[in-house]
Design a protein around this nucleic acid. Structure first.
Length: 249
DNA sequence: CGCCAGGCTTCTA
DNA sequence: TAGAAGCATGGC
């Protein structure tokens, strides 16, 4: 929940609270048991898929751990999973993420939802592309996204116009999918890869941000180990978290 | 005050 | 085609 893939969850009691798939949920973990609860009906929302609880991470971690350095990195925070969030929401949140820090990303996303998301009775859903595509940069001023406001609007317009299509992103050759995303102003290789990894379930994509570049230089100067190729994106999340948190603890 | 943040666009050579 | 400047905002 704190690995920088998703930005609407807050620490709450002994778990996390946030809005996902149009529902306000509370999630907590005790040992291997993960519990999701809500005051809403969860009908129609597939949180096993959202949190990738249907994926065999024991098998994936075993394969990554064939490399001894990766084994240590995985063991540092073995509960991390790559989520499968809605594509449009992931696209917008990672446009906001550029040249930004995680706390401020969360703040901008929160204001975006508060101002333009559908009121579900006490909380707000993530805004639709249709709503965002009609806005001007001045309309977005309250969310204080800075220069990213025009990128958000361009992404929403290209989404509603069908220039960026979810099904294509999930099924087309990886390079074609990236090119489609990079037609959006403000979307470059890093944001495109994050969308493909965190929502389109393209586990072989390996987003390279400043943290990953620094971590790769010191941990894997010869590149990512061969055993991690199939699940490079999952390895990326373990490496990202390790790089950011290891020294501090 | 200056530097940096899950980068990208634009300008320059 | 590579490299640097500029970009909104906010925390430190």
């Amino acid at each position: 929940m704190e690995s920088g893939q998703t930005f609407r969850f807050k620490s709450f009691n002994d778990g996390y609270q946030g809005v996902a798939l149009g529902k306000e949920i509370f999630i907590k973990q005790e040992d291997d048991k993960i519990e999701i609860s809500s005051s809403d009906s969860l009908a129609g929302a597939d949180f096993n898929r959202y949190f990738s609880l249907d994926i065999d991470y024991k098998k994936i971690k075993k394969q990554l751990s064939l490399d001894p350095t990766l084994e240590e990195i995985v063991e540092f925070a073995p509960g991390i999973r790559v989520m499968r969030q809605p594509v449009f929401e992931t696209l917008i949140t990672f446009i906001i993420s550029q040249n930004n820090n995680i706390p401020r990303i969360s703040g901008i996303v929160e204001r975006l939802c508060d101002n333009f998301g559908e009121d579900k009775g006490g909380y707000r859903d993530f805004p639709t592309a249709g709503v965002l595509s009609e806005l001007s940069p001045e309309d977005l001023a309250p969310i204080r996204a800075g220069f990213r406001d025009k990128y958000i609007i361009d992404a929403a317009i290209k989404w509603t116009d069908g220039i960026v299509r979810e099904e294509f992103l999930k099924t087309a050759p990886l390079d074609s999918a990236r090119d489609m995303l990079m037609k959006i102003k403000g979307v470059g290789p890093k944001v495109a890869d994050c969308v493909l990894l965190f929502s389109a379930n393209r586990l072989e994509t390996f987003p390279k941000d400043v943290w990953i570049k620094r971590a790769m230089e010191s941990l894997f100067p010869d590149g990512l180990p061969e055993c991690a190729r199939e699940y490079a994106g999952i390895a990326q999340q373990y490496i990202f978290h390790y790089a950011r948190n290891r020294q501090i603890i």
